[in-house]
Computed example of a mutant assay.
Amino acid sequence: MYHSVGDRSEDPYRITVTPERLDAQLGWLRRRGLRGVSVAGLLAARARGEDRGLVGLTFDDGYADFVTHALPCLRRHGCGATLFVLPGRLGADNAWDPLGPRKPLLTADGIRHAAAEGVEIGSHGLTHVDLTTADDATLKAETAESRALLTELTGAPVTGFCYPYGTVDARAAEAVRAAGYAYACAIDPGPLTGPHALPRVHVGERDTAVRLLLKTRLHRLRRRPATGV
């Protein structure tokens, strides 16, 4: 689970990795015989029994620096990825982070460019709202409406969802399922783990080779089997 790729001079939430660090982390994967792919690609390969050596890479929020910094690095290492974006904040910024700094989000053209480069586009909701506290109307807009808008924007089916803040409960997961998504990503969903609440590991600037190795092992120990994926 990545977010922004770029300048880290201000990074109170530790959501940013430098392009150099991302390059080193993807290189670490490749040296271990692993390759980054989209989540949809990973799940399809798993269904065929062909997921050995594949790692799902996700980038949350849809920062503009994905196109300028992350995408060239992914291409250099032959990796795919899933980009979770916010169609209700096209060309805006991360106003949901009170401490800042303000980071620009992708425009519609930026999202289409990423899609044309083979990146899977998924929904991160409409405006980055915690779905576990949303009322019924907001919950529907953040799930179903965001999917419809992204389908229209990209001209392709949108099958993946990512819960803002990584927070999920049974009601939110059911709303995502009802909106027609094939899968959804969380962070550490515990008993809810399954196709619509997939666990992920946060990757940050401090994650060197040793920390990445420890994280992969810890992730295997703490996650529950995801039945049906």
Rank of each mutant, 00 (worst) to 15 (best):
P72C: 08
T151L: 02
A64T: 00
I187D: 13
Y165V: 12
T132I: 04
L86E: 01
A24P: 06
V85N: 04
A44S: 12
P98M: 00
F84K: 02
G36K: 07
C79N: 08
R21T: 14
L29W: 06
P87K: 05
G155Y: 06
A178V: 07
S123G: 08
L83N: 05
L131R: 00
A70S: 09
R32G: 15
S9K: 08
Y63K: 01
G41V: 03
E174V: 07
G49N: 10
G41L: 06
P101G: 00
H128N: 07
E20L: 12
D51H: 11
D97K: 00
G228T: 07
A173F: 04
P191Y: 08
L126R: 12
D130S: 12
L139W: 06
R211L: 15
T151H: 11
A45S: 10
E145Y: 05
A92E: 14
R35H: 08
A172C: 08
R31T: 10
A175G: 03
G80Q: 02
L126E: 12
G88Y: 03
L57F: 07
Y163R: 14
V168H: 13
V67S: 14
R224E: 03
P12L: 07
E152Y: 09
V67I: 15
G36D: 09
A182P: 00
R171N: 03
G160L: 02
L29I: 08
V201P: 07
R217H: 15
R177H: 13
R21D: 09
F66D: 03
V168Q: 13
D135Y: 02
T167G: 14
V55A: 06
D169T: 07
L106D: 08
L26F: 04
R32I: 00
L131Q: 03
E205D: 11
A81Y: 00
A95N: 11
P12V: 09
R52V: 10
V5E: 05
A70K: 01
